Computed example of a mutant assay.
Amino acid sequence: MSKLTDSLVYAAFAAGWAVVRKLPERVALKGFEVASDFVWWRRGKSVRRLEGNLTRVRPEATPEELRQLSKRGMRSYLRYWCETFRLPDLSAEEIVERVVVHGEAEFRQALAAGKGVIAALPHLGNWDLAGGWACATGAPFTTVAERLKPERLFDRFVAYRKLLGMEILPHDGGAGVLSVLGDRLREGRFVVLVADRDLSERGVEVTFFGEQTRMPAGPAALAVRTGAALLPATLWYDGPQLHIRFHDPIERPAGRQPIVAMTQALADVFAETIAAHPEDWHMLQRLWLADLDRTRVPVG
């Protein structure tokens, strides 16, 4: 990315952040809905990829049903950005009011056990708002973020999330990141990891909606190494509110490959909620191995 492009991207985000925060909420949300419909209508690369992913979730859907589903999906995705831009201006009480939690008692019980808790979640709903809820209710956490470009945009997102109470580690931090996460869990603390897309190409191969893909090994590996509880967490919108569901812990199975089995168990839980709320799954990138293989250049 050139310096000029870096500057334009940063300026666009900065302007959006400033303007959206000053608008009345209803006006801001309506503006983002109109923008999402325009993006959807143009049918660019991201929209086509979203539809390609949704065909795995809803294989029985007609082309028109799939198009309408992708339209709702883009509205949900742009809603995420609108809420994220406005989140720093919400009080802790306002954040809590916007969230409905299922399985909170089990989550609090796992935290109170003092062995650490890992919440693994897919790209569903608004994970920033969910993180704000956790911090506002006495569960600050450590997480890993994909490094954005330009660098100062990544720094701004880190600063914003720190303001909410999160500790952010860069995804490209190597083995040191896993070491820090392990330390936090051994201290009995809370770690949150988005876990439905592998960025390393070294993830665990799982079956997801009947096809093969890779998901990060990190959540299961950390649970095995530290003894922390591994809780799948899923998110979805229902009207004005975000729902968070903490599922039953993924137990370490007997056998020689517990990380593989635990990661598959996470994938199964993710698939259940994504199937129920596909419009809130913000997966606009290639995910399945069959799609990734098509992008590789043949050798020889």
Rank of each mutant, 00 (worst) to 15 (best):
E93D: 15
E93Y: 05
E93M: 07
E93R: 13
E93A: 15
E94F: 03
I95M: 13
V96I: 13
V96M: 09
E97K: 15
E97H: 13
R98H: 06
R98A: 11
R98E: 09
V99Q: 07
V99K: 11
H102Q: 13
H102R: 15
H102C: 07
G103Y: 06
E104W: 13
E104A: 07
E104S: 02
A105C: 03
A105F: 06
A105Q: 12
A105S: 14
E106T: 11
E106V: 09
F107H: 10
R108L: 14
A110Y: 06
A110F: 02
L111I: 12
A113T: 02
A113Y: 04
A113F: 08
K115D: 11
I118N: 07
I118C: 08
I118L: 11
A119P: 01
A119F: 04
A119Y: 08
A120K: 01
A120Y: 04
L121K: 06
L121W: 01
L124S: 14
L124C: 14
L124K: 04
N126D: 09
W127G: 01
D128V: 05
L129N: 04
L129C: 08
L129S: 10
A130F: 04
A130H: 03
A130I: 06
G131W: 07
C135D: 08
T137Q: 11
G138Q: 09
G138T: 08
G138W: 10
A139F: 04
A139T: 12
F141P: 06
T142R: 02
T142V: 09
T143W: 00
A145D: 00
A145Y: 02
A145K: 06
R147T: 14
L148K: 13
K149Q: 14
K149T: 15
P150G: 02
P150T: 03
E151P: 07
L153V: 08
L153P: 08
D155C: 07
D155P: 04
D155R: 15
D155E: 15
F157S: 03
F157G: 05
V158H: 04
A159Q: 11
A159H: 02
Y160T: 14
L163Y: 12
L163G: 14
G165C: 05
G165I: 12
M166K: 01
E167M: 05
E167I: 05
E167G: 00
I168A: 01
I168G: 05
P170T: 02
P170N: 05
P170I: 00
H171K: 14
H171Y: 13
D172C: 01
G176I: 05
G176V: 08
V177T: 12
V177L: 09
L178C: 09
L178P: 04
L178R: 10
V180M: 05
L181P: 04
G182H: 02
D183Y: 09
D183R: 15
R184I: 00
